[in-house]
């Protein structure tokens, strides 16, 4: 439909846990440089889908390609090209900021000199240049979240996967965090984000709404609002959820 490059493609993606179907024939694709939101209530299957895309979980069936590689056949190639941030902003609390940066950059095979150069720029941008030697345990949640995101994209991945990245964070910090996401996207990094905050959907280029393991709607926030004649994505979501019942 347009000439942009597809970096994530899911065709008939299914994930079953025993008799429970967490993902029921999902079909979607994500373009390069796009901010793609996966919306849904808790338990709708968002995290499951995201885990399949970053290779943490194997799909039951379906054809899935990420960064040009098949999830089934080349998971290791995919790993080199993606970044990941979990809902816990997982950093090592007993290590300092700089040690965390060095470690994560190191496991992505970055060279020492480059790590040094980039970490200086990054810390400056975050306003943490004097805190490089502080333990993560001493940082407030908002800073941890920003740092976790900066580390997730430190090695310049093609795609970064964010699993509910704004859980438990105050609205101002959330706003700041989205600015960081925009900046990453402007650098050409594709952002794949799951959230259950409907207002955040407005910030995405395109969103997918999931309920009970199925995709109910997909499109840009404006498209969805006009298609459902709704004021907000939240309203769209509530209409879709009501239809299910």
């Amino acid at each position: 439909m347009d000439s942009r490059e597809v970096v994530i493609e899911a065709r008939d993606m299914v994930k079953r846990f025993g008799s429970f179907t967490a993902n029921d024939r999902l079909n979607f694709h994500v373009y390069r440089g796009e901010i793609f939101g996966l919306l849904g209530a808790n338990g709708a299957g968002k995290t499951t889908a995201l885990k399949i895309l970053c290779g943490l979980s194997k799909p039951t069936s379906g054809e899935i390609r990420v960064a040009g590689y098949s999830v089934r056949h080349n998971p290791n190639q995919i790993k080199r090209n993606i970044g990941y941030m979990s809902q816990k902003f997982s950093l090592y609390e007993d290590l300092t900021i700089l040690e965390n940066i060095r470690f994560f950059a190191g496991i992505y095979g970055m060279r020492r000199r480059e790590i040094r150069k980039r970490s200086a720029t990054m810390l400056k941008k975050l306003g943490l240049e004097h805190a490089a030697g502080r333990l993560i345990a001493d940082l407030p949640t908002g800073w941890r979240q920003k740092l976790a995101f900066s580390i997730a994209i430190f090695h310049d991945p093609q795609i970064v996967f964010l699993d509910e990245p704004t859980g438990g964070v105050d609205p101002i910090t959330r706003r700041q965090f989205w600015e960081m996401i925009y900046e990453a996207a402007s650098r050409g990094i594709t952002v794949f984000v799951t959230t259950h905050y409907m207002d955040e959907a407005e910030y995405c280029d395109r969103v997918t709404i999931m309920t009970d393991g199925q995709i109910m709607a997909i499109g840009s926030p404006a498209e969805l609002k006009s298609a459902y004649k709704a004021e907000s994505i939240d309203e769209v979501f509530r209409m879709l959820a009501r239809n299910i019942e």
Binding site: K79, R80, Y84, M85, K88, S90, Y92, I107, Y108, F161
Partner: peptide, 11 residues
């Protein structure tokens, strides 16, 4: 702490 996930996603 959830860091295992981050490690498993890494190369």
């Amino acid at each position: 702490k959830g860091t295992m996930e981050v490690l498993l996603v890494s190369p």
